[in-house]
Design a binder for these strands. Structure first.
Lengths: 196, 196
DNA sequence: TGTACATCAGTGAACGCGCGTTCACTGATGTAC
DNA sequence: TGTACATCAGTGAACGCGCGTTCACTGATGTAC
């Protein structure tokens, strides 16, 4: 019972942090706001989590998990590997558009000076890229090592396109324009990779 | 003479800020450090520039200008549009690798809550993308409107690849691996775009 | 050329606030008898 | 079952520091006579 109370506290804090990140973004995230939303004292954050960064990582893990689910669903919805890849990209844009703040938080959060991003979290990121590997290998006949690199390159290209299209620093594009541009881009890329 | 003293102060501050950004990155940039390096009082920053953000933008403009120069040089070094595009990408990676902090600063800097990135600075960013348009239009026969979007998409894809390959959140890649992956990527993309 | 005065860029100590983290306390929970 | 005691999660006021920005002052520069 004592254990479950402790779990409840962690859960409340995590929920509160997640909601804040989804609604306002990581830039507006304050320890005080989170604990207030969670209905506990400021200091409790530090009995439940080592520090604020760890709590943020936990919230980002949830976002990654939701994103990963949608990517898996996109793969499952198709059997043709070509369509699977297009579906993955479409799912990625769609997630980014529907979860702007949470999605940005995945890449905007920085660890403090000395600290490294823990390995388990890096793995969660890498797992996303992994989702591309199967369809890509079905489509091309590449050696496994090359494949991992290709998947990663493809992921970061798509990511870059989505990211930039949502930034203020450039003229923002409408959702439809982004999706269309991404489709054209991926189409060309796959054609180019296949017809070597 | 009075005017030139004032210019000298702005220059000193800008140089100091630029050096700090190049050496330590934008995250470690403090008003006090800059003014100390520039050999002036803390308050002088605010007689020379409206605020710290404007000074940062000025420093980023310099970085953009240096980057733009290298991109122009890459275009000028080739006549074949296909090679020009490969050269542009190569120049981009190379600049990013040789100016990691300054390059990151271009995209990491955020304006405070209410403020927007000024238009002249957005233009400077857009000008980079513009460098792709000529070779791309020589290579493909696309309508001008489509072309701008394609150039932008291509730019952000390349940018995404370079960016992610330098992040801690993923396993960092060596410079050679990045360059090779980028070449393969671009090669495939151009093949795909041409052979429609 | 020299003197008195006005201006204002430049100064840097002080302000003000935000905000993550700590720590001495307390009250709920569990244990012993 | 009831009582005394120990433990420790939870508390929130206080700490501490970083840091951008301001503002009352001053000394260099320019102007008038």
């Amino acid at each position: 019972v004592a254990e479950s109370k402790r779990e409840k506290l962690r859960e409340n804090l995590l929920n509160a942090a997640e909601k804040r990140i989804i609604d306002q973004g990581i830039g507006a995230l304050r320890a005080r706001d989170i604990t207030q939303d969670a209905g506990c004292a400021l200091g409790s954050l530090y009995t439940a989590y080592k520090d604020l960064d760890l709590l943020i990582l936990a919230a980002n893990s949830r976002t990654l998990s939701r994103l990963h689910d949608e990517l898996r669903a996109a793969v499952a919805a198709e059997t043709d590997p070509h369509k699977q890849l297009l579906g993955l990209a479409a799912a990625y844009v769609s997630f980014a558009l529907n979860n702007r703040h949470a999605w940005s938080a995945l890449f905007d959060h920085r660890m403090p000076e000395g600290a490294e991003v823990p390995d388990w979290h890096i793995q969660e990121h890498a797992a996303l890229v992994g989702e591309i590997i199967a369809p890509l290998s079905a489509l091309l006949q590449t050696e496994p090592e090359q494949l991992a690199l290709q998947a990663r390159t493809l992921f970061s290209a798509v990511h870059g396109i989505v990211k930039l299209s949502l930034e203020d620093r450039f003229v923002a594009l409408g959702p439809d324009t982004v999706s269309a541009a991404l489709d054209d881009f991926l189409g060309a890329q796959l054609r180019g990779l296949a017809g070597r």
